[in-house]
Amino acid sequence: MSPEHEAWSIGELAERAGTTVKTVRFYSDRGLLPEAGRSSGGHRRYGPEALERLRLIRSLRALDLPVPEVGRVLEHGDGLTAGLTDAIDGQLRVLGGQLTALRWREAALQLLRDTPAELRAERLRLVGALSAPPGTAALARFWRAALPVRLSRPLVAAVLEHAVPEPPADPSPAQVLAFAELHAIVTAPCGEGGRSGTVWTDRVRRPDVLYGGLFEAYALAVPEVTADRTPGRGAVLERFVAAHAEGRSEPDGPGFRRRLSALLTSATDPSVERYWALTTVFGPAGRTPTVGAAHAWMRAALAADVAAGSG
Rank of each mutant, 00 (worst) to 15 (best):
A7N: 09
G11C: 07
G18P: 10
G18Q: 12
R25L: 15
R25Y: 11
R30N: 15
R30Y: 13
L33T: 02
G37E: 13
S39M: 10
G47V: 06
L51F: 11
E52W: 08
L54Q: 00
A62Y: 09
D64K: 13
V67I: 14
V67K: 09
V70W: 01
L84N: 00
L84P: 01
Q91P: 12
V94M: 11
L95A: 15
G96A: 15
G97S: 14
T100Y: 08
E106C: 03
T115G: 11
T136A: 13
L139A: 08
A140V: 12
F142Y: 15
W143F: 15
V149G: 05
R153Y: 06
R153E: 15
A157S: 14
A158H: 11
P165T: 07
L177W: 03
V186P: 03
T187Y: 03
C190L: 13
G191K: 04
E192V: 10
G194C: 13
G197T: 08
R206V: 04
R206T: 06
R206W: 04
D208I: 01
D208S: 02
L210C: 00
G213E: 01
L220H: 05
V222C: 04
E224H: 06
R229I: 02
P231D: 06
R248T: 06
R248G: 01
F256A: 05
F256R: 03
R259F: 06
S261G: 10
A267C: 12
P270K: 09
S271K: 10
V272H: 04
E273D: 14
L278H: 01
T280Q: 05
F282C: 08
A285N: 08
G286P: 06
P289L: 04
A293L: 08
A300L: 10
A301T: 08
L302D: 02
A304C: 08
S310N: 12
